[in-house]
Design a protein around this nucleic acid. Structure first.
Lengths: 349, 349
DNA sequence: TACGCTAATGCAATCGATAACGCAATTCTT
DNA sequence: AAGAATTGCGTTATCGATTGCATTAGCGTA
């Protein structure tokens, strides 16, 4: 039972050559209909399944694509992966998932491993701790197509797919301004990551365009956990001339802030408005639903996959586009919507 | 640049044989230290990466394991996958992810594809719509190890990993009884799936053990969406002698029910207690946090992976265990915790 | 009748790495 | 010092499928 049927087994049984079997199975024109029928039926009989490895070895390609993310159980990443998988599967590709745990060394190992596995391409959101990038450059040196998404990095010959984080930060902040907020704080994410930096820059620009002062003490660095948002809110409300709005670079930060504020008796959104980022599922489920910037992760995954598919056809002739930028969508909800009539532009659900 | 270095390239450059190169790279004892050094260094120089496909073909095994789930972006599944990946990756396996979309035909295609890809095993949570199972039997016929998790099915020679859904239903219901509830309704999931049926049976048993009557009109079938929970609550509160507790087979159902109840002015948990199932992240984030039964998905994934790893070593000699059962953990939260003093057994966070 | 043509299939190399086996040269044994 | 053992490396087959290049048989035709 353990033995897997090969074309040789079929050949032997029928008294013909493996070559003929192969051609019959592939509907080669120079094979008689009679033998084709014979081969087909006995193949089914013998439970034959073609060995992709053999083919892959011969063609030098595996029909596998590596997808590398920090953690697959994060809402954002699992949705991106779903998008990727759904785009790639119909094209005959399989998706190999790897988690870096946001550790550089692990990312290196994974990249090496994927190259060993002869994947046809790599779609990756890089680890947060990366200091060097030679392992990624090696991928390119091998001529292996690579696509960055979300957490990207500018490299020669790599296409990246991401939302416009600057725009997201800008929109969120502008929305707060339109709600009448004049003192807007920002909970900033890890500033070594481009995405958080861009959100911050968008925030700054929006302040500037609105004629509001940028006050350094209103920008706090946090990681994306409830607890830090909570403490940040506490600190913010203690400064002289405290904020009347908080734009958090993450939903968890926003959540923590809101919880602390509510507990302390602040009324949201009347006393203070809050906007998060990522549109985590919980933001719209909450009784006091949280405004947030949606990154359309599934769409991002789809796009990354499509970019990969396009890229593999094209020879290296100057990638037409170096980056694909998706537009973020601000979801306006309870936490920032003051009932001063209908709001025109941003989406309300 | 496109050319990938092979051991032959190294051999040619050094004027030795590919076999020697291979042995040198594998630290074979019969190769001189000098040659080993030579080979190693030029391998690095030439950016050599071993071709796993070749090895896989030779050994008849790919170091890949297929993981098949309905949707990877569901909280439960993405966590299971994380568990699987973390257990398997250190052992040198790669995880190939596939989504069935809960469609039988797609599941068939995927299974076929994975067999083509010579995966070393399949870890699967079967599609909801399955009517036939011959595609799964074919996997076993090929001698390919298979592990079911969560949505399982009894088959000869397949190990399954799941939580004790009966126990989960029983615990949840018993907890409600202990809170003083006497008329407990149940929102039942798709009864063709074993897991939901078991939860329902646990619910029944708990009623029985508590001397409470089972009333058919208090059991409604719903799918796992907020909207249906909402409507179900509406219907339940309209019956004669309405419930003072609802045990929902899903958190989304519980959420919908709670939203309707709160809107209608019912006090939770004083007027009516609600318990959900799955411990979705939002349940503990809510202002009125929702009691729920935790399935420890990551642990389940780890366990499934371990079972696979064990199974591959063992020859088919009567699998010692046909099913691994994990214990569910009831997380008691606001939605069902009446402040009648401390509750002894169940976990409170 | 012999030659060319075509249809149907066989032969053998190939992809990259490994491993059993073989063989020459060196080292060890007693 | 002769045979035995060991060292170091080459030869070749192998995994399963594909494919360019024969090869064979049958048929038509000059």
């Amino acid at each position: 039972m353990a033995h897997k049927t090969t074309i040789y087994d079929i050949a032997k049984k029928l008294g013909i050559t493996a070559a003929t079997v192969s051609r019959a199975l592939n509907d080669h024109p120079r094979i008689s209909e009679a033998t084709k029928k014979m081969v087909m039926s006995t193949a089914r009989e013998m439970n034959y399944v073609p060995n992709k490895l053999a083919l892959a070895l011969k063609n030098g390609k595996s029909t596998n694509v590596g997808v590398v993310v920090p953690f697959i159980n994060r809402h954002f990443f699992s949705n991106v992966i779903r998008g990727i998988e759904e785009e790639l599967y119909p094209k005959g590709y399989n998706v190999i998932i790897c988690q870096t745990h946001d550790e550089e060394q692990r990312e290196r190992d994974i990249i090496q491993n994927l190259m060993n596995s002869q994947v046809e391409g790599i779609i990756i959101s890089i680890a947060r701790t990366n200091t060097k990038f030679d392992h990624l450059e090696q991928v390119l040196k091998k001529g292996l197509p690579m696509v960055f998404f979300d957490r990207k990095r500018d490299m020669e010959g790599v296409v990246s797919v991401a939302i416009d984080d600057f725009q997201g930060g800008y929109d969120a902040t502008m929305h707060l301004v339109k709600q009448g907020c004049r003192t807007i704080a920002h909970l900033r994410g890890d500033r070594t990551l481009e995405i958080y930096w861009e959100r911050f820059k968008g925030y700054q620009q929006a302040l500037k365009d609105s004629g509001l002062a940028y006050r350094e003490e209103l920008v706090l660095d946090i990681t994306s956990v409830e607890e830090e948002g909570l403490r940040a809110a506490q600190r913010l409300m203690a400064v002289e001339n405290p904020p009347d709005a908080i734009f958090s670079s993450s939903d968890y930060g926003a959540l923590g802030a809101i919880k602390w504020l509510v507990q302390k008796g602040y009324r949201i959104p009347d006393d203070i408005c809050v906007v998060g980022f990522s549109n985590e599922p919980f933001t719209q489920i909450m009784d006091l639903s949280i405004s947030s910037v949606d990154q359309s992760p599934m769409e991002m995954g789809r796009m990354a996959a499509r970019v990969f598919l396009d890229g593999t056809d094209v020879t290296d002739t100057a990638k037409t586009q170096k980056r694909v930028v998706l537009s973020p969508t601000l979801m306006v909800r309870d936490s920032s919507l003051r009932d001063s009539g209908p709001v025109p532009s941003p989406k309300v659900d």
